[in-house]
């Protein structure tokens, strides 16, 4: 019977505490197979957490418990445990670290852009809270990088959804969706594309319309195009835009 097994079955909580902390510290100091050590520590901590709640060791225990999950990259649980820690021990020395790690856990849990972004929103909330609470905090740079990345993910999601309306030839919904996009995400990295594809949707809608609607709709498309050139004279898509501009002018000649 190993020391670990004995402690696991023993009723002595002090023993469990000591052994758990020693596993945790070994893993932190770069012992071999750290993951197994964290797992063992978690098993021991789980048994004694309720008993230590309210005692002086409780604070350290709650932190290392959450941090063990964090080190194991089980971000779902570490996010929650760090959140609990920040609420239970608001006066702790390590509360800033816990707040950051809680946010980072949600950041790690945030899925690819094409899935539900509830965790992304949560991570952004947590980061925002961190920025407000610790404007001079030690993790501020990393937090900034994370927040930017998450923001861009949300932008990409909304852009791709709008773009899909364009791709599936639902031009009217595409125009509306790009409009919403430009309002909801001002200054996004997809801004040029959004303005361009809003124009292209209007253009494709116009040329596939009944004859009596074409002129009116082409004029609308042209106004969107003018708007594009206002911002992106030499944009990524300006070559294509110039081609379509010529085409629109040619078509409009037929109606004048």
């Amino acid at each position: 019977c190993s020391e670990y097994q004995k402690a696991l079955k023993n009723d002595d909580i002090a023993k469990k505490y000591e052994l758990g902390i020693s596993y945790y510290e070994q893993a932190q100091d770069g012992a071999k197979r750290p993951k197994a050590k964290y797992r063992k520590a978690i098993k021991l901590f789980e048994q004694i957490l309720p008993q230590y709640r309210g005692k002086p060791q409780g604070e350290k225990l709650a932190f290392v418990y959450a941090n063990s999950y964090y080190e194991l990259e089980d971000y779902f649980l570490s996010g929650y445990q760090f959140e609990r820690f920040t609420k239970a021990y608001p006066d702790s020395d390590r509360v800033e670290e816990a707040a950051f790690k809680s946010a980072r856990s949600y950041y790690e849990g945030s899925p690819r852009y094409s899935l539900d972004q509830a965790d992304t929103d949560k991570a952004l909330d947590k980061l925002q809270l961190y920025f407000v609470t610790y404007p001079e905090g030690q993790f501020i740079e990393e937090a900034n990088v994370m927040a930017t990345e998450l923001g861009q993910k949300l932008e990409k999601k909304a852009y791709e959804i709008a773009k899909q309306y364009h791709h599936t030839e639902n031009y009217k919904p595409a125009i509306e969706a790009f409009d919403n996009y430009l309002v909801d995400y001002p200054g996004s990295s997809y801004r040029e594309k959004a303005i361009y594809y809003k124009f292209e949707s209007a253009y494709l809608l116009a040329i596939n319309s009944y004859d009596y609607l074409v002129e009116e709709r082409l004029l609308v498309a042209k106004s969107y195009l003018d708007n594009y050139f206002k911002y992106y004279q030499d944009g990524e898509l300006s070559v294509k835009a110039n081609e379509l501009k010529a085409d629109i002018e040619e078509r409009l000649q037929e109606y004048s």
Binding site: P111, Y113, S114, L115, D116, A118, K157, E160, I161, Q164, Y165, T168, N170, K172, P173, I175, E176, A177, N180
Partner: peptide
């Protein structure tokens, strides 16, 4: 918008929607 899709990609769901912005 669609929420709760933690496995299925947006495009797989949005293409099935008969409710579209601006309609």
């Amino acid at each position: 918008t669609v929420t709760g899709n933690d496995k299925t990609n947006d495009n797989v769901i949005y293409r099935e929607l008969r409710v579209k912005p601006g309609q």
